[in-house]
Write a protein that binds this DNA or RNA. Structure first.
Ligand SMILES: [Zn+2]
Ligand SMILES: [Zn+2]
Ligand SMILES: [Zn+2]
Ligand SMILES: [Zn+2]
Lengths: 155, 155
DNA sequence: AAACAAGCGTAATGTTATAACATGTATATG
DNA sequence: CATATACATGTTATAACATTACGCTTGTTT
């Protein structure tokens, strides 16, 4: 019975699931109400959000006060599972649109309007990795960000 | 007399000056005791340091308690003048060895020992800039960092 | 049932960064 | 020299970002 229930729930979940949930569960993670809510908060807007903005969003969505550490825990988990990226120069978090395959995401952050563009360019990230490797360094995670002005703000 | 004094002091300063001081003064900056002390704190060790570590170091050096904002002000100034770089993924600051010419510095940060290697590779940084520009973005400052393991820690 | 691990709650604290306003210091000018 | 002015720093407080420690609940394993 327990097995049946679990199978049933799993089926429902995967049925509703977006790619993020699917990838997360495929890796053995549990797509709880809390985690679902955090992911929706991160993915909600185009703009990246700070951990405390996400905290407020989730608190509103769930109708009760959520502690910041709960959010940080889940963000860290999501980053490990490639569902979320942290933008280091902004202290913000953004949902990845490619949870299936890890990537060295590149972000263009506009200092005018805050709009952030997400790029994946393997040739570029590989060049950085190669440069690091050439020195004997073993790279793990890449941080490639450009701060400047978007098209709309460059006037 | 005032003019004489100034000329004299200036001569002494430039005589002792390292490249950083020289470049800073050439750009019209004043190499005050405070700024000198902050620069020495940043440059003191190979490892990058946090703003509060620098604050403590400077406080010790001057024998009195310095406020964190004083340090942040000067770090910002140094970054603008290309004397210091901020490592975004670590919240640390490191002295630049090329104050004369601005560069898109690349940092390799070891997660084992904290050792940070500073690279300048224009081909790589230009590729990132070109990628950004191709989207209509106008890049200003680049952030290119690799987190991983240095030679000594990769065993 | 008992043992165990995962997930989250709660509160406190630590760390990094900035704001607002006062005071001091160098330099120019009359 | 006196005074005006801009620059530099001091002081205090607070904001913003992140982690620690501990306990409770729930689900899973034995
Ligand atoms: Zn990506
Ligand atoms: Zn913009
Ligand atoms: Zn450099
Ligand atoms: Zn190392």
């Amino acid at each position: 019975m327990t097995t049946n229930n679990h199978a049933h729930l799993h089926q429902i979940h995967t049925h509703i699931a977006g790619p993020a949930q699917h990838a997360f569960e495929a890796a053995g993670g549990h797509w709880t109400v809390m985690r679902k809510s955090v992911f929706e908060a991160v993915a909600a807007e185009g703009a990246p959000r700070t951990a405390y903005e996400i905290t407020d969003h989730v608190s509103s969505a769930l109708g009760r006060k959520i502690g910041a550490n709960t959010i940080y825990r889940i963000l860290e988990l999501f980053i490990e599972h490639n569902l979320v990226s942290r933008i280091e120069s902004q202290n913000t978090y953004v949902a990845c649109d490619h949870p299936q395959n890890p990537a060295d995401c590149i972000f263009l952050v506009c200092s005018g309007c805050g709009k952030t563009t997400h790029l994946d360019d393997q040739a570029t990230s590989e060049q950085v990795r190669a440069l690091a490797t050439a020195t004997g360094f073993t790279p793990d995670r890449m941080v490639i960000e450009a701060n400047g002005r978007c098209v709309g703000c460059s006037l």
